[in-house]
């Protein structure tokens, strides 16, 4: 699916850019975005190091395991394929906690750590497991309790009003993500061992 969307976007861009006379802008965007992608990745190194370092302390002092055990009733249902004492559960729980608290900077490194640990359980290394898809869907549905700092800065006093609408909307999208991922994983189209 990603193959077609990726290629489709670029093909449409070149066709539309040619017709609309924006082809120079398309070229420029391609080159600039390639540069931006590297800048974002390099910029992540420091923040990643900070949170992964702190996380390591939390892990070695047993803090992660305490939190993971407390949330076991939920994680066991969401990730039935992951053994309940696997380190991946700890990282997943911390990633969600960081998201809920609106700590986007901390959430990404923890999420990437969780993916690495989920990959250890994967038997087909280039294909996503059910647990990975569930984790991603919950992540992209943006579970959060605290408004992003940027939104508060932009909305000023009106951010008080959108607090409640944002929590309800985000709750609904997370529920939708869980239902969608659990339904889709059973469909033939998305089975792991389908013949291509």
């Amino acid at each position: 699916m990603l193959n077609y969307i990726w290629f489709g976007m670029m093909l449409i861009s070149v066709v539309v850019g040619t017709i609309a006379g924006n082809i120079d802008a398309v070229t420029e965007a391609a080159i600039n975005m390639a540069k931006t992608a590297v800048e974002i990745s390099i910029g992540l190194i420091g923040i990643m190091a900070l949170w992964l370092g702190t996380m390591k302390i939390a892990e070695e002092s047993g803090l992660v395991q305490i939190i993971a055990r407390a949330l076991q009733p939920i994680t066991i249902r969401l990730f039935p394929d992951v053994p309940k004492d696997h380190p991946a559960i700890g990282s997943i729980v911390l990633n969600m906690a960081a998201n809920i608290l609106g700590l986007g900077n901390a959430a990404t490194p923890l999420g990437l750590k969780a993916m690495e640990e989920l990959q250890e359980l994967n038997t087909e290394k280039d294909t996503a497991t059910n647990a990975m898809c569930t984790f991603l869907a919950i992540n992209t549905s943006s579970v959060q309790l605290i408004l992003p700092a940027t939104v508060v800065a932009l909305m000023g006093a009106a951010s008080n009003q959108i607090f409640i609408t944002t929590i309800i909307a985000t709750g609904l999208s997370t529920i939708a993500a869980i239902i969608a991922v659990k339904t889709l994983e059973k469909m033939n189209r998305f089975k792991i061992n389908r013949d291509k």
Binding site: M1, L2, I5, Q119, K125, D126, T127, A128, M132, C133, L136, A137, T140, A177, A180, V181, L184, E185, M187, R189, F190, I192
Partner: peptide, 10 residues
Amino acid sequence: IKRSRHALAA
């Protein structure tokens, strides 16, 4: 991971 299965749709 190259094959993302149902993650995008969800």
